[in-house]
Design a protein around this nucleic acid. Structure first.
Lengths: 224, 224
DNA sequence: GACTGTTTAAAACAAATGTTTTAATCATTC
DNA sequence: GAATGATTAAAACATTTGTTTTAAACAGTC
């Protein structure tokens, strides 16, 4: 069988692609092996033959997703050892936004990860270990450089969450945004969003950093 | 039957409460009428008798949720006509955070709405009309007062999204946050978070507002 | 070209699930 | 207190769905 992708291509691979699409769209429970098989041009029994059962297929799909998601948009894209912390932050935001909003390629990676984050299965742990943990670690470093190396942990975490939240919101609330404001997320819009989020966050951290270092930690901790 | 809540309480009401819990936990597809019925101490046929079918029950649950979610924490809690825009923003953030994080009462309202936002069913439209639309309208007003009444719409929207994103992140990523940082969201933590988000956002908008009004719109629009 | 291990195809199975049916029970009214 | 309408209970039904089985088709090897 020398045909390119008529039937010769690995059924296993086609199943993963199809399953990714279906899982992302309908969730683990909502996805049926019949729909996956149909969409992969495979027999119903193919899933069980190649993966054992539906759950194992899901894990395989997620693992596949994890490794490919970071490839196209690594969090330090275009950053050199000489880059300023500001440039690193912009690169981080930009890559995160493209990672979750770019529709020029299969979008199920991001949607699947978002699903797993919002309602974890047993697979969340490996996702944290391989992707989210390192990602947060990297952002921690960047933020610390931006506000103050000896800023208290709470402030650092809060700033990180403020940045992550701004980025992920556009993915999470995309249906609402599009219904309320008829906004579409093409590459140039994403570019502008990343500029906004960077300026917004830099302005904020400039303020907070001053607060934190001048009035010392007690100031930030006192609330209300 | 005069007993308080042994069996005399409306089965219909018990079904809605139980269904809310189960739908929020397992999603529409994952929830089974059997589990709902069991948890409501009702017969399997009760759902169909009282609501026609499972989908109609879901809509009823969501409608019930919508009307009750805003009651305890209205977005302008504690705000008077004399309040400053800064106070209004703080109240908005605070109430939003409590709305989505407060675990001292049934949490399924927020979880269910988050589900509907992330993966809409046909019910999203009424949710936008009754809740999200007004909420965003109110925030628009507050933000405009904070940066500049004649700020361009894009900047206003972006700031709104930055604020909403920061708040909703803690709900959306709660499992990841708790696994990574062992953070729990008690009332005092929520209070401090709201203070952080307010300061973060005010600092940011102060910056952007200056940018926007002094260098005029062209400045903001130029990206990269 | 028969043999062997791998993959695909079709059908069947068993469990789960939303819904319906039918009868019993409860509550209210005359 | 019989009659009537509303509610609940138990069982059955029809579909869907994940999985298994059995046989056929294929690919590579001697």
């Amino acid at each position: 069988m020398e045909a390119a992708d008529k039937k010769g291509t690995d059924t296993r691979e086609r199943l993963i692609q199809a399953a990714g699409e279906v899982f992302a769209q309908r969730g683990f429970k909502g996805a049926t092996v019949r729909e996956i098989s149909r969409q992969a041009n495979a027999n119903i029994a193919a899933v069980n033959y190649h993966f054992g059962d539906k759950e194992e297929l899901y894990y395989e799909v997620l693992k596949n997703s994890l490794s490919s998601v970071m490839e196209k948009y690594p969090p330090d894209l275009g950053v050199t050892p000489e880059s300023t912390p500001e440039e690193r932050l912009h690169a981080f935001i930009r890559s995160l936004l493209f990672r979750v909003l770019d529709e020029s390629r299969p979008t199920w990676h991001a949607r699947l990860m978002a699903r797993e984050i919002a309602e974890p299965t047993a697979a969340l742990d490996q996702m944290i270990e391989n992707i989210l943990g390192p990602l947060y670690g990297y952002l921690t470093m960047v933020v610390k450089q931006l506000i103050s190396d000896e800023a208290n942990d709470e402030l650092v975490h809060n700033c990180m969450f403020s940045i992550m939240g701004q980025c992920l919101f556009y993915h999470n609330a995309r249906h609402v945004i599009s219904k309320l404001y008829h906004k579409k997320f093409g590459p140039e819009v994403i570019e502008r969003l990343s500029t906004h989020i960077m300026r917004f966050s830099l302005g904020a951290m400039k303020d907070l950093g001053i607060l934190d270092t001048s009035h010392a930690k007690a100031n930030y901790i006192s609330s209300q």
